[in-house]
Nucleic acid binder design. Structure first.
Lengths: 247, 247
DNA sequence: CGAAAACTTCCACCGCCGCGGAAGCGTTCG
DNA sequence: CGAACGCTTCCGCGGCGGTGGAAGTTTTCG
């Protein structure tokens, strides 16, 4: 009945730097060992163990014991969405980030957000789909149009197998670097999955960053009209996204 | 670049029982005075003042000074959505509430959630709209169909004035008592607003609870086919929602 | 103009919790 | 079978921060 203690309990768990670091590290959807999470949070194994026990107790993360390792992953997409929601508030009305570290550039360019793509790449894809009338998108929600369903089918995504009960739904997810909505939910997850399947994108080790392969650069341009500048030399492209577009 | 500290800062602010109580008290969208919030959080004015200063500093709440009172309201709908998201995680995989206090019954029956309706009433409305094909609804999102837009226009809601840029979007909001999605976002806000305008619902003083008037009981039945049992005697209705439907 | 009300600032108290070292337990190797 | 590894439990330390009392500031009312 009284909801405040429930909210305080969850938020209190997240509101601790070490635990927040662990949850953030798990935001890419992968399962990490207790040791890796301890390293990510910059604490010793005993401290990490205590934090992990608390997070697991509250069902924010799910343990997965394998041999002498203990893996942890986010308990559910809902937890990832909650973290997104907190992040959306955190970046609201806040001065823009001034420095751009090399690692931050990578993350800003393309990364994974639990199960879907985020960063410039994802926003560009969302823009393309919206421009062509394949999805309707704003900060409140997103919807795949009939034309969009056909287009996605051609790309290898069957919307009827994505959502078990309903079709056509995707979730609008506020990108915390671009501050603009992109496509999440089941459709976003399927889109990301298909990109990895096609070899267009590859996960970077121990990071949420995503690298676009040469095939991906070609594919994103031909299929979505999205041009990404290469790290070395940026060719003359129609719509260049990347570090050179930063202001 | 490193997002964990940002998340931890916001979550840490929310993760304090007194502050969580204040934010929860503001979840009905109204502005409350510092004294009222102190009472809601069960702390003395000095303590409340400190908490409010921190929440305002982080832009979670917005101060509104009027005479010798200082009013506070949630800074933005985004904050309300964040709290919803935390609540959705908090009630996830948790044993059902066993006791049902009289006040909890009222809240469960009908209440406001920032700017839209929540509780049994809202879920029943959402069910009606979904059953008639006026909206498509699941946990990821919601969409108003053309038929739905026409129906809502007849009810006095012009979707083109609701959303400034886009139309047809509403947000799916997980109800924390019913554990089912209902209609939020701009459409949900307009729906709630129209119910109050018609005199179908009335806010209870100093509570998020909403009372359905006699006119409302008639209107909800005729327009939406939703029958609400009266507090005193429940008549034979087609679809009874309320305490008697609890199991 | 003086008193009351609403809120804030200052201050000292203290309890909670994050922390790491040491030791214990289970697993996986050579 | 013993040693190394990964993780947990136990323990005492230390500090951050929530707390209310007292006093100060601003506004309203008689």
């Amino acid at each position: 009945m009284n909801t405040a203690p429930l909210i305080a309990e969850i938020a209190g768990l997240v509101g601790e730097p070490a635990r927040a670091s662990m949850l953030t590290a798990l935001l890419d959807g992968r399962a990490l060992t207790a040791g890796e999470l301890a390293y990510a949070a910059r604490v010793t194994p005993p401290t990490a163990s205590m934090h992990l026990a608390k997070l697991a107790e509250a069902r924010l993360i799910a343990p997965l014991k394998t041999g002498r390792h203990r893996y942890f992953r986010l308990a559910s997409p809902r937890v990832a969405q909650m973290l997104e929601g907190i992040m959306a508030v955190a970046i609201d009305e806040r001065p823009r980030y001034r420095p751009l570290s090399p690692l931050a550039r990578e993350l800003r360019s393309a990364r994974v957000c639990y199960d879907h793509l985020a960063g410039r790449l994802s926003v560009a894809l969302a823009d393309c789909l919206a421009r062509r009338g394949y999805v309707l998108l704003d900060e409140e929600g997103a919807e795949v149009t009939p034309n969009g369903a056909q287009f996605l089918a051609g790309f290898g995504i069957d919307l009827f197998t994505v959502g078990t009960r309903r079709r056509r739904f995707c979730r609008s997810c506020l990108d915390w670097t671009e501050r603009r909505p992109h496509i999440g939910g089941a459709v976003g997850a399927a889109l990301a999955s298909r990109c990895f399947e096609l070899g267009w994108t590859e996960r970077k080790r121990d990071s949420r960053a995503v690298m676009v392969t040469a095939a991906g650069r070609k594919g994103f341009l031909e299929t979505f009209g999205v041009a990404l500048d290469e790290p070395s030399a940026a060719g003359p492209a129609q719509r260049v996204i990347g570090s050179s577009a930063a202001r």
